[in-house]
């Protein structure tokens, strides 16, 4: 039943799209019908795949780097009071900066190649992961904090055995947020300056009036974003596995 709905909804949307094209009779360079876009998709499969590889490669590399750096930052800040005192205000201020606006600067410094896109994605992913995880690490349940103290826990062990497991669901939400932002960042990076990638292809196709190719690239970007979001959701569910329900949950949230 659920599988049927999963197919039925996109199919009816496609039908609606085609009907719109037929009824309004818009020229194909304004809105190509799904059949045309499909033809462009398969006709240019090799080229699209090449650009998609570039975009997806940068996206994943950037996400990996951003998540790793965010994790490292949050863990270090949680463990080292001095680093915390110095870095915490910076983390707060940095969140207020619209990272997308940095794209021209990043491209100016790092060039038109993959590096600028990877850095854009990493920047966009880094801040939500670092700040969400750090906040959760600094708020272990009071009862568990007492327990750790009474048992003579070392700071490192306390971080690893109490703070981090407690913060895992928050890390899951951070990753989900990152999965939403990251595709934006990689496309903006390509729009600002690139000679490859799906974002670049969209601009180029637009300039040449190949609207059907532009829509094909757009369709691939949308699919990429959806898959990424789905993966992040799966990871988030994984981090919430084994969490209490009912009364015990209220207790640990206190």
């Amino acid at each position: 039943m659920r599988g049927l709905r999963l197919i039925a909804v996109p199919l009816s949307l496609l039908a609606l799209w085609q009907a719109l094209v037929w009824v309004t009779a818009v020229p194909p360079f304004i809105l190509p019908g799904p059949a045309r876009v499909g033809a462009a998709l398969f006709g240019n499969a090799a080229m699209l795949a090449e650009h998609a590889r570039f975009t997806i490669g940068n996206l994943l590399t950037g996400m990996l780097a951003g998540v790793a750096l965010g994790l490292a930052t949050a863990l270090n800040l949680a463990l080292l009071p001095l680093a915390r005192a110095m870095m915490r205000p910076m983390l707060v201020v940095a969140q207020a900066i619209p990272v997308f606006a940095l794209a021209p600067v990043v491209t100016l410094w790092l060039g038109y190649g993959p590096a600028s896109k990877v850095v854009m994605v990493a920047l966009v992913v880094y801040f939500p992961v670092a700040s969400v995880l750090f906040d959760a690490l600094m708020r272990p349940p009071a009862a568990l904090d007492d327990l750790a103290r009474a048992m003579g826990a070392t700071p490192m062990r306390r971080l690893w055995l109490i703070q981090l497991p407690h913060a895992l669901p928050a890390l899951g939400s951070g990753l989900r947020l990152a999965a939403v932002y990251a595709p934006f960042a990689v496309i903006v990076g390509e729009w600002v300056g690139s000679s490859r990638g799906l974002g670049y292809l969209m601009l180029m196709a637009n300039g040449r009036g190949q609207t059907d190719l532009m829509f094909a690239a757009l369709a691939l970007l949308a699919a990429m974003g959806l898959v990424l979001f789905g993966l992040a959701g799966a990871v988030q569910r994984l981090t919430e596995r084994g969490r209490p329900v009912g009364a015990a949950r209220d207790f640990t949230k206190r």
């Binding site: 568990l144 007492d146 327990l147 055995l161 109490i162 497991p165 084994g242 209490p244 949950r249 207790f251």
Partner: peptide, 8 residues
Amino acid sequence: ADQLLPWA
């Protein structure tokens, strides 16, 4: 409160 680790 029992102070147990809910995930363990």
